[in-house]
Deep mutational scan, measured.
Amino acid sequence: HNGKLCKLKGIAPLQLGKCNITGWLLGNPECDSLLPARSWSYIVETPNSENGACYPGDLIDYEELREQLSSVSSLERFEIFPKESSWPNHTFNGVTVSCSHRGKSSFYRNLLWLTKKGDSYPKLTNSYVNNKGKEVLVLWGVHHPSSSDEQQSLYSNGNAYVSVASSNYNRRFTPEIAARPKVRDQHGRMNYYWTLLEPGDTIIFEATGNLIAPWYAFALSRGFESGIITSNASMHECNTKCQTPQGAINSNLPFQNIHPVTIGECPKYVRSTKLRMVTGLRNIPSIQYRGLFGAIAGFIEGGWTGMIDGWYGYHHQNEQGSGYAADQKSTQNAINGITNKVNSVIEKMNTQFTAVGKEFNNLEKRMENLNKKVDDGFLDIWTYNAELLVLLENERTLDFHDLNVKNLYEKVKSQLKNNAKEIGNGCFEFYHKCDNECMESVRNGTYDYPKYSEESKLNREKIDGVKLESMGVYQILAIYSTVASSLVLLVSLGAISFWMCSNGSLQCRICI
């Protein structure tokens, strides 16, 4: 991952900044910058967002509201009850120091605090018919004063009620008058409520006091790749198909172990950190130390980045220098085999997901714990399936590479015959000098055995068991695999060879 928040398929997220979902939807004055928000790819909250409900109280069923919003990608904020005409018999300019803005008392931008007009609070009834052709999110509140005197001074009615009804919602609220500790300079409380109004449905408000009335509502448009994440990451000019709280993932790998919460087309989250597919040879310690064997393909974004291909070729060293050249036929066979294998694994496992966190309130801790156990169970199954699949494929890959290298080895052996000696570690020792032209003939299969047989015969008789390297004779190393990324691999195959001279070296080696 890149540690950044990015656009998702070209669409920017909605960053709530210092506000949370509650503050944004109710219209906390400190969240005025969010009022123009219309569309987004996903919503970003920060872990310690401080601006929620400015007048103390709870947004009821907040967790369910977050779940609903996680599939919303755009909205239209509109005046559901026009301020100047909807409440002619009531005062609608209630403000509070708890919702101060720029040093002055204020109130929510989407709600109206209705109080008595003169000395009376006549029963009010108002309704709205949803003609938007889509779901409408309606929010309101109920004020709970701290004393009967406060109730009387604001609403005149000691036994007030609030009723809200639609086809799918029907509740009646009565204020709970009680002494409470002071929070944000208030002994009173406000509880906030919401409902989704279906197209064509009607919502009716009736009250004799204590109503925090809707002013603006939201017509919602769903987008199934949307979601809500909690993150401290910063926004950058970048684009992605998959976003996590820790950063964007741009990967076609089937798995990731970065974060379980994802938005967009994302690899499946697994616990494993070692889900690797081999593309090189079986481990040979001396070669492995030099980083030549054991190439791997990573299938977990965050564990290993991208696929690494092994390729086969020849390396030689003689009086004229040293050089490398790919054996294109065996390399292409290996590439085709690995590509098919990788595609097979991805096809089997690479279903892209959006995974969002589930919200539970403080009273639902047991449910949250149960949900976590269920999620953990599914996660263990996914991890096991992934590891088992790759384990089985790896064994076949190792066998496949062994065969490829063996074929190259036999190709060289059949040409050199007794003009060189096998020394048991995949290397041959020449009994004759071999210049670049000679080396090329070994690589392309045109090695002239009779041409060098007499010199080889004489050297075999002279050496008589002495280690060949100390006599200045020449080696050919018969097994060799270097490691390159897919891009470098293609470039390498396009070149005939490249040279690395070893000044004054008397050794001649050709490596497979």
Rank of each mutant, 00 (worst) to 15 (best):
N350W: 04
L370E: 09
Y324V: 04
Q256A: 05
V488Q: 02
K373M: 11
L489D: 00
G377V: 05
G280S: 02
D448H: 14
I479G: 13
D448I: 03
D402F: 06
Q328M: 14
C508F: 15
K411H: 05
M349E: 00
N385Y: 06
N250A: 15
E437V: 09
N252I: 11
A233F: 04
V342D: 00
T305V: 11
G302Q: 07
L468R: 04
W311S: 03
K341G: 04
L408Q: 10
G264L: 06
S485N: 03
Q320R: 03
T339Q: 14
Q328I: 15
E347H: 06
N404C: 03
Q475D: 15
I510W: 01
P267E: 02
N418S: 13
N385F: 07
G294F: 06
I258A: 01
S234L: 13
S486P: 02
I300T: 10
G472N: 02
V356C: 12
G313L: 02
P285V: 09
S344E: 12
S272Y: 10
S497T: 13
A420W: 02
S485L: 14
V356G: 12
F400D: 07
Q243N: 10
L379E: 06
C511D: 08
D448G: 01
L477R: 10
N418K: 08
R271A: 11
N371C: 12
G298W: 12
I338Y: 04
D464G: 08
V488Y: 02
M439F: 04
V442K: 04
V374N: 02
T279L: 13
T351H: 11
M439D: 05
F428V: 15
Q320S: 11
G321T: 09
N425H: 14
L489F: 12
L477E: 10
Y409P: 05
M307D: 03
G357K: 05
K406F: 04
S486V: 10
L389N: 05
T240V: 13
N333C: 08
H316G: 00
G504H: 12
E422Q: 10
I249N: 01
I296R: 00
Y449K: 04
L490N: 09
D448S: 15
L490E: 00
Q332I: 03
T240W: 03
